[in-house]
Every structure is written in C-alpha cells, then in structure tokens.
C-alpha cells in the first residue's frame, strides 16, 4: 500500500460520504443520477465477488463491504425514501444505461485475461466503472444551479481516479511484475471523462461563482 493508493481510496470513501451527507442533510438527491448509482452498485457487486473466494487483507475486506453497503443504501434512499425519492430528477436523468452496459459486457467477453466467469465479471466491472459517470455528467449539464455538495461529490470521484493513476505509476516503478493494461487503459479513460468537469469546477472556484456546466 503506497500513499497514492491510500489517498485514492480515502478520496473515494469521502466522495461517497459527501453524497450520503447531501442526502441526509438536505433530504434531497437533486442533481444526482440514479443511473450512475445503479451502475456503481453493479460495478462493486461484480468486482467484489472475490470476497467469498479470496482473502487479501482486513483493510481490503472492510473497504469492499463499506463500498457495497453505502452504494446500496444510496440507491435505497433514492428509490424508496418517502421524502428523498420525490426529489429525484427522473425526467432529466435520461441517459440510456443499456448503451454502456452492453458494449462493456461484449468487451469483457472479448478482451480479458482468463476465460473464467469470475474473471470476465471482474473485467466487466473494470470497463463499466470507466464509463459509469456518464449519466451523472449528462445530468449535471442539465441541472441549473448545481449545489456545492453535488459538485464536490463529482470532483472527489474524479480526484480518486487521478490518484489511482499515480498509484499505478508508483507500483509500475517499484514492483517488477506489476502490469495491468486493461485496468490502466480503463482508468485513464475514466479520468479523461472528468477533464471537462474539472475545468469548469476550477473556473467556478477561481471566480467564486456557482458551478454550472455549459
């Protein structure tokens, strides 16, 4: 475990806590894409199937359980909570998830490192995570007056991915056999999707204005 990896995981954790805080404190999920949240739950579910087959470390196990638990509780709030579910922008959250789920599934079947069910599901989760933010970014573009917590949530998610790239560079340099092209390419693509958002996030911050995407 290096400092970049730890910082990345903590940033990821904080992003989820910020989202939960927004939902609890404001009793609203306005501006949050349920489609992206569904996709993340799917990502965690398929990636962490090895919870049952392999023990890596206590840290690893606890974090996996936390990510699974929090992602499903966010979905629970958005779908079923008496107050919160009414604040969901269903009409604006129109991205068709099927257009990313199917290509990712096909890609995972074609490009993987081992022909086993667990490995193909794991690879699918890597591809899917790379593009799972798209419905959220589309919804943000349609949202007038993006609130601070929503903006910071997406910013932290992007930062988490960027830190993972630093972690990979560090591991590549320090661990002789560390090679993972599928993960690296997906991760770089995923971080790239945030570039536009980061630009407007910093612009709003510098000018002391409310964030909005053109």
């Amino acid at each position: 475990m290096n400092i970049f990896r730890l910082a990345a995981d903590m940033t990821h954790l904080i992003s989820i806590l910020v989202l939960l805080l927004k939902i609890h404190a404001t009793r609203s999920c306005r501006g949050i894409s349920l489609k992206t949240q569904d996709l993340y739950a799917l990502v965690f579910l398929f990636r962490y199937l090895d919870l049952f087959t392999r023990y890596i470390s206590l840290y690893n196990t606890v974090m996996k359980l936390v990510f699974l638990g929090t992602s499903f509780s966010i979905i629970y709030f958005m779908r079923f909570h008496r107050v919160v579910r009414n604040t969901y922008d269903k009409e604006q959250d129109t991205f068709r998830s099927i257009f990313i789920v199917v290509p990712c599934a096909v890609l995972a079947l074609l490009i993987n490192q081992e022909r086993s069910v667990l490995e193909i599901l794991w690879t699918f989760s890597i591809y899917l995570e790379a593009v799972a933010i798209l419905p959220q970014l589309v919804l943000l573009q349609r949202t007038q007056n993006i609130d601070n917590l929503t903006g910071n949530y997406v910013f932290l998610l992007g930062t988490y991915r960027g830190l993972y790239i630093l972690n990979w560079i560090y591991r590549y340099l320090t661990e002789p056999h560390y090679r993972q092209w599928i993960v690296w390419l997906s991760g770089v693509l995923q971080t790239g999707l945030y570039v536009d958002f980061f630009y407007y996030y910093f612009l709003a911050w510098r000018n002391n204005q409310k964030l909005s995407l053109p």
Binding site: F67, R171, H177, R179
Partner: peptide, 10 residues
C-alpha cells in the same frame, strides 16, 4: 503473478 496484482486494489 504480476497480472493478478491489481486484484488487491479496490
């Protein structure tokens, strides 16, 4: 084993 390394990541 290197191929499996990232499986210790989240």
């Amino acid at each position: 084993e290197g191929e499996k390394a990232s499986k210790d990541e989240l």
